[in-house]
Amino acid sequence: MRRIDVIVIGIVVFAIGGAGYLGLKLAGLDSIDAGIWSQLVLVGIILAWSFSYVFRVATKKMTYGQQLKDYEEAVLQKRLDELTPEQLAEIQAEIEQERNKS
């Protein structure tokens, strides 16, 4: 995520809070109650995002992890493509020998 994305998300969160406050005030709540409810909604949104972040970290579904996995697969595929048919047959024979041992 770029810095500008974080800034935009921060502005949007504050705008949602302000709009929620104004909406609740227009719905008839006094200033204190509207403030409490709008803050409660914003804290709920932030907690939900935080828990989703922790879940993505725990399951390694983050952008960096996916990019690293894609890179490793590309490097291995490139190495495989560079092998001669004889080298490939030799490696496959070694794999078969190891499978037969186990």
Rank of each mutant, 00 (worst) to 15 (best):
I32F: 13
I7S: 07
G65A: 02
L40K: 03
I46D: 01
K61N: 15
L24S: 04
Q87R: 15
W49T: 03
L76G: 01
S102E: 14
G10T: 05
T63N: 06
Q92G: 06
A93F: 09
K101H: 02
E98C: 08
Y53N: 12
Q66G: 05
V41E: 10
I91S: 08
V75E: 15
G20N: 11
S102A: 14
E73K: 15
E73W: 13
R99W: 07
L83E: 14
Y64F: 12
V43R: 03
A19V: 11
L40R: 03
V57A: 12
V54W: 10
W49K: 09
Y21S: 01
D33S: 09
G10S: 06
N100W: 05
E72Q: 15
Q92F: 12
D30Q: 02
T59V: 14
Q97D: 08
M62Q: 14
I45T: 02
G28H: 00
K25Y: 05
I36M: 10
I11A: 02
R56I: 05
A93C: 02
E86G: 11
D5T: 10
T84H: 13
V57M: 00
E90A: 15
K78P: 00
T59F: 12
A48V: 12
S38K: 02
I95G: 01
Q77Y: 12
L68F: 12
V54R: 07
R3E: 08
L24T: 10
A27P: 08
A74L: 13
Y21L: 09
V57T: 01
V12P: 00
K25N: 08
D33R: 04
F51C: 10
I11P: 00
L26I: 02
Q67H: 10
I4G: 03
V6E: 12
G44T: 03
A27H: 07
